[in-house]
Amino acid sequence: MSVLTDTWSWLTTSAHWYGPDGIWTRLGQHLFLTVVCLLISCALALPVALVLGHLGKGGALAVNLSNIGRAVPTFAVLVLLLLTPIGSSGQWPTVIALVLFSIPPLLTNAYVGMREVDPDVVRAARGMGMTGAQMMRRVELPLALPLVLTGVRIAAVQLVATATLAALVGGGGLGRIITAGFNLASTPQVVAGAVLVAVFALLVEGLFEAGRRLVPDRTGDRETV
């Protein structure tokens, strides 16, 4: 029980919230890393996945990429990048690792989403004289959107987790509170940092879940307005 009260008092100490190592700074870094890397990996992965899905090519790659991403330890990649020449240039190892690990869920889900569009609908669109680009934009993409967004959600949660691990290799973010707590042998600080990270991850997940509910599911019956 004392751990809980100690953690609570750590969290409610205002000195821990401000300053260059404060919670607000770390939260800002975590948020910045997550958002920037999510934008980069979406920009990299989604166009490729959507075009491949439209053409129906590269399916093996899109699916296997997820398996490879799972088998390679995030921590190992972070350390490997740190030891390369890139490692000496600030946040780059973290950014590269984050982007690498968020690409597989984006690619796989967007690809599968495009492939699962009812072939009859695609044929009908072609019959109406739509070009490939029109079909992609106006037929396949809206129908694939729920799965594309699922991929973005998984990628975002993955980014939060990877950004936490980046603290082990000296990156910024909320994970630093945990690693600093370990170095100080301060269990309350470790737990407080973990609580902050967990809440942050759950908030990100919740945000995307709420966003998903706002997007109309066009795959069902003709109820859409």
Partner: peptide, 11 residues
């Protein structure tokens, strides 16, 4: 599953 691994171990 949503809780990052480092946080899980720390908790």
């Amino acid at each position: 599953y949503t809780i990052p691994s480092l946080a899980m171990f720390s908790l």
